[in-house]
Amino acid sequence: MKLITNIAAAVEEQSVSAREIAANMAQAAQGLQKVIQSASENSHVTGEIAGEVSEVNCAAKGMALSSSEINKSADTLSKVSEQLKSIVGQFKV
């Protein structure tokens, strides 16, 4: 009878241990799911940031083109101004 009692106690201990292991595994799985979700969110945010950086890059290129055109226009205006000064200088009052 004592052997059966010892076996029953061992089985009960094994059962408790198995439940604890199952609970720990469930908790670990939940933690892993949170890590996966966080990584997914970070990946999404990283993608958004990359898109915004690309937009800023395109805007900077557009500004560089505009700046170049403004410089050309300023050079042209300067030349016209010099020509006008020359023409006005030919008139005597």
Results as ranks from 00 to 15, higher is better:
Ile87Ala: 13
Glu41Gly: 03
Val53Ile: 10
Val80Trp: 06
Ile7Trp: 07
Ala10Ile: 04
Ser68Gly: 13
Arg19Cys: 08
Ile21Thr: 08
Ser38His: 10
Val53Glu: 04
Val93Asn: 07
Ala28Tyr: 10
Ser43Pro: 00
Val16Glu: 15
Ala18Asp: 10
Glu48Leu: 15
Ser81Glu: 12
Lys2Val: 09
Val88Lys: 11
Val53Gln: 00
Ser73Val: 03
Asn24Tyr: 01
Ser15Trp: 03
Gln83Gly: 08
Ala26Ser: 13
Asn24Asp: 14
Gly31Pro: 00
Gln27Asp: 12
Asn24Phe: 07
Ile36Gly: 00
Leu3Thr: 15
Ser38Lys: 14
Glu82Phe: 05
Thr76Asn: 08
Ser66Thr: 04
Ile49Met: 01
Ala39Arg: 12
Gln33Gly: 11
Gln30Thr: 08
His44Gln: 15
Ala64Cys: 02
Ala8Val: 13
Lys2Thr: 11
Gln90Val: 03
Leu65Pro: 01
Gln27Ile: 12
Thr76Lys: 09
Gln90Leu: 09
Ser38Trp: 01
Glu82Ser: 12
Val93Lys: 12
Lys61Gly: 00
Ser67Tyr: 09
Ile70Cys: 02
Ala28Cys: 04
Thr76Glu: 13
Ser43Leu: 12
Ile70Glu: 05
Leu32Glu: 12
Ala28Ile: 11
Gln27Cys: 06
Arg19Ile: 09
Ile87Lys: 06
Glu12Met: 11
Ser17Gly: 14
Val11Ala: 14
Leu32Lys: 10
Gly89Val: 02
Gln33Met: 14
Lys85His: 07
Ile49Gly: 02
Glu55Asn: 03
Glu55Ser: 07
Met1Val: 02
Val35Met: 13
Gln30Asn: 12
Ala29Trp: 04
Gln37Leu: 05
Glu41Gln: 13
Gly89Cys: 04
Ser43Gly: 15
Gly89Met: 06
Glu12Val: 07
Lys92Ala: 11
Ser78Leu: 05
Leu65Met: 14
Val53Gly: 02
Val56Met: 03
Glu69Gly: 04
Ile87Trp: 02
Gln83Ser: 15
Leu32Trp: 00
Thr76Val: 07
Gln37Gly: 03
Val56Ala: 05
Ser81Arg: 03
Ala60Val: 04
Glu12Ser: 13
Gln37His: 05
Ser17Met: 07
Lys79Met: 05
Gln14Ala: 15
Ser38Cys: 02
Asn42Tyr: 02
Leu84His: 01
